[in-house]
Design a protein around this nucleic acid. Structure first.
Lengths: 143, 143
DNA sequence: GCCACTTACTTCGAGGTTCGAAGAAAATAA
DNA sequence: TTATTTTCTTCGAACCTCGAAGTAAGTGGC
């Protein structure tokens, strides 16, 4: 029996992720980042309101203690700053510094350049984005 | 400026991988596996000749010491067996045990069932497989 | 206002994972 | 035979992740 289309897709998605992670390692190291810290940095969109720790942990699929550890490292590097949310003083919001914005942009650009997806032409990319979005949409159930 | 199709695709690829990893955690734990050991188990196809440690490390994008550690765990669980390659006695080949084959199948089935891709219909899946394969093919350069 | 409860986060300590360096064993080549 | 290369393992350090416990702040009942 030959491998199903579903299995092939899952394996290919995994493989593309692993290849991308592997290739950006050098770039991350140049900025003093690891995969965990780079992922967190990426997840903070400077165009949006700074997320709380809780929100960020959910985006990264990690728990609160782990996120505290990661954000401490980013703070130490001067890439993010914590502050207390004035509307709920239990919450800490995490905002990019100017350095953080710069490094985040550099990491994203390097990742896009090294991704296997960079080889696809515009039509294929749009097609792909549609399919990946469809897969994610169906399972995103609002809470 | 809005996000490019390339960036959207890369983010979606990452997100699908994270969601899948997150969802199979319970199943892996039931079999005494972690992500690292499950990935290694998956990478050993019982239909092919057992890979050497070197070959397996390359598939997993990890280095030799790390793979030794992971294979030790799988060996402890009784899922794989090491033996010396008779054609090159420096090499150790890693083969699935009967238990290993059974658990590998269970892990793959659970993963496929929980993957966001499971929501796509056959046409979309075939289309997706074509696009992912295209992205991988162009960058696979033979060493 | 006071008290119990819940929520958001941090610290701590343990365990899991990854990796570079060094070393053992076997193949290769001169 | 001897030097070199290849494959793998062990060791030790650093990093990552998580459960448990603790702190601070919001919420609701009275």
């Amino acid at each position: 029996m030959t491998r199903s289309a579903l299995e092939t897709a899952v394996v290919a998605n995994h493989e593309i992720f692993m290849q991308t992670s592997d290739r950006i390692e050098t770039v991350l190291a140049e900025h003093g980042l690891t995969h965990a810290t780079a992922h967190a940095l990426w997840a903070i969109d400077p165009a949006e309101a700074p997320p709380s720790m809780k929100e960020l942990a959910s985006r990264l699929y990690c728990n609160a203690p782990n996120l505290s550890f990661v954000v401490n490292q980013l703070t130490g590097r001067g890439f993010v700053e914590r502050s207390t949310d004035p509307t709920d003083r239990r919450s800490r919001v995490v905002a990019l510094t100017e350095d953080g914005r710069r490094v985040r942009t550099a990491v994203i650009e390097a990742t896009l350049a090294l991704s296997p997806f960079a080889q696809l032409d515009t039509d294929d990319l749009l097609n792909l984005v549609g399919l990946l979005g469809k897969a994610l949409k169906r399972t995103a159930g609002p809470a």
